[in-house]
């Protein structure tokens, strides 16, 4: 059937071009527990969205679903024009390496690899490792002097910057942050957020950041509040 006879579908196609993420009745159950109640959410391309809520409010679940780490129990989920429900596990992995960069609260760096090698690991899964490019990425996040250090020899802020370098190395369209500043002091937090803002200006990726810190949420364009898996409030910054 051609799209001319199906105006609804056509409209959705048009909307998709501007929205990088589109969910429709997105639900995630863990057994009997409903972590995310049916959620309709649109995130336009280039937006910085902060997701706030208490622990267990479903914000991490939302982030995992959007990043292709987890599968929804019901509803539809389109990211960058891809229907994530149609992808199998390896397909999701391929989607993640090309489309998504993730910054973790606990950094999750490989302990036996140096900073540069940790960045190269992401390159390896994406395509081929390229040391010069990885070094350049670390220089961009201000770690040009700590290239050959293992994660154990780096401070929390430095580790988080390695994590950022790793997240942006494959030029993702979507950057996910799971409480990226949760373990950092105020000074490091500001530094990391400044860095993210700078990088976003250059690379023009979309940011979805989960946090419970009001100040951190304030760096974004829009903040949504989740409570018990339900979107309770939405706030536009500017």
């Amino acid at each position: 059937m051609s799209s001319a006879f199906c105006p609804v579908k056509r409209e959705r196609l048009l909307r998709m071009a501007e929205n990088i993420i589109e969910t429709n009745g997105l639900t995630r159950n863990y057994g009997d527990i409903c972590a995310l109640k049916p959620l309709d959410l649109q995130i336009p391309e280039g937006e910085w969205l902060s997701v706030m809520g208490h622990s267990g409010s479903g914000k991490s679940t939302l982030m995992n679903l959007v990043g292709g780490l987890d599968r929804p129990s019901a509803g539809s989920l389109q990211v960058g024009g891809k229907d994530l429900l149609a992808l199998n596990e390896d397909g999701l992995a391929r989607f993640r390496r090309e489309f998504v960069g993730i910054i973790f609260q606990q950094h999750h760096l490989v302990p036996y690899l140096t900073a540069v090698e940790n960045v190269m690991m992401a390159q390896y899964f994406h395509s081929v490792p390229d040391e010069a490019e990885a070094r350049h990425a670390l220089e961009r996040v201000g770690l040009g002097h700590r290239l050959k250090n293992r994660p154990g020899e780096l401070s929390g802020g430095e580790q988080q910057r390695v994590c950022i370098a790793r997240a942006i190395i494959n030029s993702p369209k979507l950057l996910l942050g799971d409480e990226p500043t949760g373990n950092l002091d105020h000074k490091s937090t500001v530094m990391v957020m400044e860095l993210l803002k700078e990088l976003r200006a250059e690379e023009r990726f979309t940011v979805v950041m989960v946090t419970h810190n009001q100040e951190v949420a304030g760096w974004g364009d829009r903040t949504i509040y989740l409570d018990d898996g339900v979107l309770v409030r939405e706030e536009r910054m500017r």
Binding site: L69, E89, D90, A93, R94, R96, R97, E98, V100, I102, F104, H108, V110, P111, M121, A122, F125, H126, R166, N170
Partner: peptide
């Protein structure tokens, strides 16, 4: 297991 999870999260397929 954390390391394995990380590798998968940053885009490694199960086989890789």
């Amino acid at each position: 297991s954390k390391e394995i999870g990380l590798m998968k999260a940053i885009g490694g397929t199960r086989w890789e």
